[in-house]
Write a protein that binds this DNA or RNA. Structure first.
Length: 217
DNA sequence: GACCAGGCACATC
DNA sequence: GATGTGCATGGT
């Protein structure tokens, strides 16, 4: 077997044995997944949970109501998620896209051809590759691998990626070596985020990383 | 009080 | 094309 393939499988198995199923995405509906994906940009999930709770308790937690809400009001409701002004704009940008292209119907949007939808979403200002792929995987249930800062660090840490690798390079590494399976990609990314929280944050590529993957066998 | 969190766009060189 | 910076709250 190819070494990279072997290592990627071993890392997954080590993580799953250690942490078990993560039950992602932590949201109930595709709409909630998408709102969360935008709000969690460079932000801890705890802060996002508060923002989502405040949106819900305001009675505006639907595409139409958020679309109609004044942007300042929206910003106030998501205050706890940080970057609230810019994130309010990003939510509005997404909602405008949803109404312009699909009349506000999320099911219709998610039924779109995946690679076409991916390209369209990437054109929405404020939606980058990680946010878009999170939407495709966790709201659309398409087998698209989500790459984040932890993913890159772990791969570099284990000699599977170069320090200057870009998003799509790393994504391709997974998608070419790990079988294209929505549930597998779901769990793998969730486990990486789970272990990422334990990695040494002060020293890049710290050799004292508490998680040791046995890549020898 | 520093440092970080499940990014992204934009300015500048 | 690479590198730097603003965005901002809440937890450690």
């Amino acid at each position: 077997m190819d070494r990279r393939k072997h290592d990627l499988v071993t890392i997954y198995n080590s993580l799953f044995e250690r942490f078990g199923p993560q039950h992602w995405w932590p949201g109930e509906t595709p709409f909630e997944v998408i709102i969360g994906a935008i709000l969690t940009q460079n932000t801890s999930w705890k802060n996002v949970e508060k923002a989502i709770a405040s949106l819900k308790s305001s009675g505006n937690f639907s595409p139409k109501k958020l679309y109609d809400l004044p942007i300042d009001t929206l910003a106030g409701l998501i205050r706890s998620s940080g970057y609230f002004n810019i994130k309010a704009k990003r939510l509005k940008n997404f909602l405008s896209f949803l109404f312009d292209e699909y009349k506000g119907n999320l099911d219709d949007m998610l039924k779109e051809n995946v690679s076409l939808l991916r390209n369209k979403l990437l054109k929405v200002n404020g939606l980058g590759p990680e946010t878009v792929d999170s939407i495709l995987l966790y709201a659309g249930e398409y087998p698209v691998f989500v790459v984040d800062a932890y993913t890159k660090r772990i791969l570099i840490r284990h000699g599977l990626a170069a320090i200057n690798s870009g998003y799509h390079e790393i994504q391709a590494l997974f998608m070419e070596n790990v079988s294209e399976d929505t549930q597998l990609y779901n769990e793998y990314h969730a486990l990486i985020v789970r272990v990422g929280k334990d990695l040494c944050k002060k020293i890049p590529l710290c050799n004292l990383c508490p998680i040791e993957f046995d890549l020898q066998k």
